[in-house]
Write a protein that binds this DNA or RNA. Structure first.
Lengths: 331, 331
DNA sequence: AGTGAAAATGTAAACGTTCACATTCGGGAC
DNA sequence: GTCCCGAATGTGAACGTTTACATTTTCACT
């Protein structure tokens, strides 16, 4: 029964019922235009033959594939990964499917190549998950034929939606200060990442507004090991009583280094992270952090690239959720 | 300049050069059949017009889209997410793109719906990321028209590739025993997950082969909070000197609960997790765990669903990587 | 200069839809 | 019975490729 025959087409259904292919098409697209009795016959034939509309043929005629391209950095980091999952959900709920293309920002030409491939597959629009600034800039002009939105970063000429990471960082630092911190250091994310820049900005502004001196800044690469390294460097030379770390993994590394150095968190030093990774609620100590609203960002992006969307080129910020836990509440 | 005109087609290129559309087609598909001089002219016209082959039209004729469907549970857990990323990479390297469809295993009819959508989009094949056994079973017969592979689980009638989680679990427990453990408890993953079952099996077999009595088994849901809960339950009643936890997040929860109960890891109790989440190397204590080989699994799956693959319905296991850290080495 | 085969190019049809029409059907008003 | 109008259905062409085959050109060899 594993017949190598091609799947049934509209014509096959039409022939089975004794109507024209156009009637079958109408049953699918404008059922109200076809008489009840014939419609039922057609629907039954569809079921019996196991007919499925061929969306490739449909796409050829209508120039719409109902596919949305998602370009994401291949880093494997928490944020981009979550964003991709949220985008798929949003697209699915909007009746579309997602073509995923990951890009290694380190490889020359990779972003251009990603666009090339999406254009070829005929996606109706694209969402760039762009925590790296260079990403958006690698877009080439011919892309103007399809709507584009940017998730989690600045969009240049395209509409962009992101969590208000600066705001969340600001509030986290404010919180640290409210709990007695006078010298708040910062372990930042790598240069070139929008997320890193915003979180750093929030830290800086919060300190300024609190009338505190600027704290020590160390630059990390998001990795836990790198956070531990930063923690050691802090211990070696800096004066500080709190650390705002740009993501949870590095924060755990910092805490580890402090613990090894005999410094207690939150007893001696307060710590806050960012991302709310799944383990953040059970570590020793439990980690104060902020969670992004990936679903809201994704919904906005999908809406922006759907047909008939009036997309203005600005950046729209959505609030983060602050989560206060042991690591920042003082002893 | 934002002309709403349709993108150039082969015909446009042909006309620009003064050849027939077929010559343009040949330049793209069988360049050796066309004279050097005309080929260059055509290639230049392609560049100047910004022509891109329309793969929708090509797909209609050839019945191949170069798209591969990936069905994954929407859980957001570590394993499935990593698997999806690895599959995208493998597909990309094989010249294909990935259509991602996430499924909520809890929603009735969701798996069937996912298939329906993939079939509609005309994917050439599909890979099911199937940590849940029910997933694979929800496949319906009409799917026989396209090649299918299963990543990270049993495949039923389809070829399946997965990390040897039972083996890794076995070795982890063996390691715990080698470091003095006599009563190894297990915090398992939820029923219905292949990963959970395999890890549990490895634990059970290792204990049996070591001549040790069966340990206490608690069932969790993969979440860190649930792990903490399990840790409390262990403390409340069980006798144990080591815990093998089915994933790292729950393991951290267990460790947290033990710490709160005044039990030191690894001083009093040894702990091993599974997954090697990014933070596992810096927690207090650093976590002994096992990392899956997602890339190898993905490569195998993509190869299996590519044309001309002789796919036998078995399950092929690939080795995991064991990572021994503080949490299991004794004091 | 003429032949023939190989190289280069062209034409027709098809893939499975949808769009824009054209045609037929049914039945109430005259 | 005829006419007309809306409802129901049918026909032809097009979307941009590829496949299969037909035709023209090129050129080495006689």
């Amino acid at each position: 029964m594993t017949s190598p025959t091609r799947p049934p087409s509209m014509n096959d259904v039409a022939r089975a019922v004794g109507v024209s292919y156009q009637t079958v098409s109408r049953v699918l697209n404008e059922p109200h235009l076809v008489k009840e009795s014939t419609r039922e016959k057609v629907e039954q034939a569809i079921r019996e033959l196991g007919y499925r509309p061929n969306s490739v043929a449909r796409a050829l005629k209508t120039a719409r594939t109902d596919l949305i391209g998602v370009i994401a950095p291949i880093t494997g980091h928490f944020g981009p990964t979550k964003a991709v999952c949220a985008l798929e959900r949003a697209a699915r709920e909007a009746g579309k499917a997602v073509v995923l293309v990951q890009v290694d920002p380190e490889v020359a030409g990779a972003p251009e190549d990603a666009w090339e491939r999406l254009l070829r597959y005929g996606v109706d629009g694209a969402v760039v998950v762009s925590p790296c600034l260079s990403f958006v800039r690698a877009l080439r002009p011919p892309v103007h034929m399809m709507p584009i939105a940017v998730a989690g970063g600045e969009g240049g000429d395209w509409p962009a939606y992101a969590t208000d990471q600066r705001g969340a960082a600001y509030e986290l630092v404010e919180h640290l200060v409210a709990h007695g911190a006078k010298r708040v250091a910062h372990v930042a994310g790598p240069l070139g990442w929008w997320d890193a820049r915003e979180r750093e900005r929030g830290w800086r502004e919060a300190l300024a507004d609190a009338g505190l001196p600027e704290g020590c800044l160390l630059r990390g690469d998001w990795s836990a090991e790198n956070g531990e390294e930063a923690g050691k460097r802090l211990l070696a030379g800096e004066e500080f009583d709190a650390v705002f770390v740009a993501n949870d993994q590095m924060a755990l590394g910092v805490i580890r280094a402090l613990a090894d150095g005999g410094v207690s968190v939150p007893g001696d030093v307060l710590v806050a992270g960012f991302d709310d990774i799944p383990a953040a609620g059970v570590t020793v100590p439990r980690l104060t952090t902020a969670g992004q609203n990936f679903n809201a960002v994704a919904d906005a992006c999908i809406a922006a690239v759907s047909e008939g969307a009036a997309s203005s080129p600005g950046l729209e910020l959505l609030p983060a959720e602050l989560i206060f836990r042991e690591s920042s509440v003082g002893k």
